[in-house]
Amino acid sequence: MNIEDLVRRSVGDLAQGVVPPRPDVPALMERAGRTRRMQIGAAGAAAIALVAAVAIGGSALDDTSARGPEPAGTLTSSVPVWMNARSATVHVGDHTVTLAGDAETPGLTASGLVYADGAGTVYSQEFDGKPVEIDDNTVVRASSVTRWHAGSVD
């Protein structure tokens, strides 16, 4: 058997041996709703490179109708973050922020927007719209599905 046939048969066998979980459509839609509420969409805010578990794509940021409160300074950069139960490091301008999921809650999801203002302060934001100020190297723990919590310094 040549290599192409072997690979074709093997990946087919491997894929068929996997039993996918059932999709939870209501949960997907609810998660999408949380994301939409987190969209700040500040004018001029430029989403920059995200090294994280998952970055919310530009299409997800189209809706600017649900803005949360903004920091006093001018937004200079922002990073949308959608994380699961894994840690992630995001770079916001010159800042590096570590985000951590709750390892005891596999599958936990949380989302938020990490951004920096003109004064160089890095912020995250709770889902209910209350801004949480965090410092560089702060570990932000997603300890519930619906809120960010500022955690201990890493």
């Binding site: 996997v18 979980p21 999709p23 949960a27 997907l28 839609m29 998660r31 999408a32 994301t35 939409r36 578990a53 998952v54 919310i56 794509g57 299409s59 997800a60 189209d62 809706d63 959608w82 699961n84 596999p106 599958g107 999801t109």
Partner: peptide, 21 residues
């Protein structure tokens, strides 16, 4: 397996947000 599930949840959530388009 877990990453695959995360990947799908994320993808389908993004798609929902832009579903009309």
């Amino acid at each position: 397996y877990q990453l695959a599930e995360d990947l799908l949840q994320t993808t389908f959530t993004k798609i929902f947000l832009a579903w009309p388009r």
